[in-house]
Amino acid sequence: MKRILWIPGMIALLGVGCGHRAAQTAAPHATAAGSALVESSGGKQLGMPGTMLPQPLVVQVNDASGNAVTGALVEFSGPAGVSFDPAVALSDSSGQVSTNVTMGGGSGRFELTAASPDKSGKKFFLKVTELSGSYQQQVGYEVNEKYCARCHNSESSAQRVSNYDNLSVKPHSFADGNAMNKLSNSDLNAIITHGGPALNRSALMPPYGWTLSKAETQSVIAYIRLVSDPPYRPAGVTYGKQ
């Protein structure tokens, strides 16, 4: 009988020994609750696998009348491999929560979720998309920056003045999924290689087939497919249940 008394003692000792691993950092205690989450900044960034996004993701907690709520609990979550620093935080005095997002090992689109409980404890959500570029898409991004973005990106900066406003026929933004997704890969390839007139479009789009390599052209297409919104789904392939 005495021997059996040892066992609970051992288990208790084991529990103490392994306790520090199981211990989790205590979640901050919410002092207020909102009813809606809105994205402030940091969505739709292009990152690289396993790497922290250049800008933090900032979301704001609002109440029913649209005012910022301070002290509301916000939890971030995402697909396996994506990590947040911090993953749980309270909104600051302007109702905002900022977190650094590190992408997972793979490339593609990542749907992240920010969640916050309302007064009754029921959670409300905000979905944010972040992009993670593969090698090919990274090359596409570089080619895009050098050759395409000056006309296709309408935003100007001090380092790069956009030519968008100077064009009589406006080029599509690569993020304009409604327009870009209608073009098949071979259509895009034809336009990039032979210029706009290849598909009866504007001659202001010059041919790049004698400037870019085939691999570079493919990489630009891969980049366009990554950034398009709504996301691109190739026609013809049926997707089964996952």
């Binding site: 064009l167 789009m205 010059p206």
Partner: peptide
């Protein structure tokens, strides 16, 4: 027309706007 050079270059300052 064929080459659309005015997309990036200015020949006639009154009418062309190309800025690259």
């Amino acid at each position: 027309s064929k080459y659309g050079c005015q997309a990036c270059h200015i020949v006639n300052a009154q009418q062309d706007k190309g800025y690259i």
